[in-house]
């Protein structure tokens, strides 16, 4: 019994260390964003001393391109997620429901393309996008982001489609649906938790994307990660308070998304735990 309690305490302590390890940079960033610049590196450190919103108010002055880039990030993430999910759901339906031997070829190609490092793809695409007049627009960011995310999203969604009995679609076909109609009307609503979870993965991947906007954009279509990175390499010194405020603002949308989809994601995590 005492061994059991000792074990539990040990697990608890280890978990606490892991949580502190994971959350320390985030907590430091958030608390620093509410401190005057001179107190951020003060010793001994204070969690929040004289909280102030000045860093947030100064973002527009210190980093005039940030809010525009923030908006670009939202647009690119929304479009990339929507495009990726549309393609991934359609592909998952094909790979799961049409058991044709030739489908092994596109399945292999999807995974094969995913194996290329991003920089290898960027080099030949740059002149192409230049020729198309797409540089410094969100178009190449959305297309490249979706192209990279679709294989993993397809694989994830396919595993969930596989778990939904095909009988349901067949029953719907007899009830009056076409094959695709049966998938849309019956299987798709049952995939909602899986789609929510995959959306989150894709959206966060796109939100954090750095390489494509760095290479394909220069001004109008720049996204927030590039602007934040540039702000950190200012020759005149780093405005840490402003940077911490920018980073905290940049953290907010994914955090909101996780909170919004929390219930659906929990459902996915417990899927298959109980026999239906």
């Amino acid at each position: 019994m005492s061994g059991n309690i000792t074990g539990r305490i040990l697990v608890f302590v280890l978990l606490c260390i892991a949580v502190i390890w994971a959350f320390f940079p985030i907590l430091f960033m958030i608390s620093s964003s509410f401190k005057p610049g001179n107190l951020i590196w003060s010793y001994p450190p204070k969690l929040i001393a004289e909280p102030t919103f000045a860093n947030y108010q100064n973002i527009a002055t210190l980093f005039p391109r940030f809010w525009k880039s923030f908006f670009n990030s939202v647009i690119v993430t929304a479009l990339t997620t929507a495009l990726t999910l549309t393609m991934a759901i359609a592909s998952a339906f094909v790979f799961s429901r049409l058991r044709q031997p030739w489908l092994k070829v596109p399945a292999f190609l999807m995974i094969f393309v995913r194996m290329f490092p991003g920089i290898v793809v960027v080099i030949p695409l740059y002149p192409v996008f230049n020729e198309l007049g797409w540089l410094d627009t969100v178009t190449p960011l959305v297309l490249c982001g979706a192209a990279f995310a679709v294989s993993m999203a397809t694989l994830l969604i396919k595993t969930f489609v596989d778990d939904i009995p095909v009988d349901l679609e067949e029953a719907a076909m007899i009830d009056g649906c076409s094959r695709v109609g049966a998938f849309i009307r019956i299987t798709l609503p049952l995939l909602t938790p899986a789609i929510a979870a995959v959306s989150l993965v894709v959206a966060i991947g796109s939100w954090n994307e750095y390489l494509f906007p760095l290479v394909f954009t220069s001004n109008d279509a720049r996204t927030a990660p590039v602007i934040i990175a540039i702000a950190m390499s200012n020759e005149d010194g780093v405005a840490w308070g402003g940077i911490m405020a920018m980073a905290t603002a940049y953290l907010a949308p994914p955090l909101l998304l996780v909170l919004m989809l929390h219930k659906q994601i929990t459902n996915v995590m417990t899927m298959g735990a109980v026999k239906g």
């Binding site: 009988d167 349901l168 029953a171 019956i186 049952l190 239906g276």
Partner: peptide, 12 residues
């Protein structure tokens, strides 16, 4: 109309 072995009722 068909009745399936698994019933195939729409769960939602």
């Amino acid at each position: 109309a068909m009745v399936f072995q698994s019933y195939a009722l729409y769960p939602h």
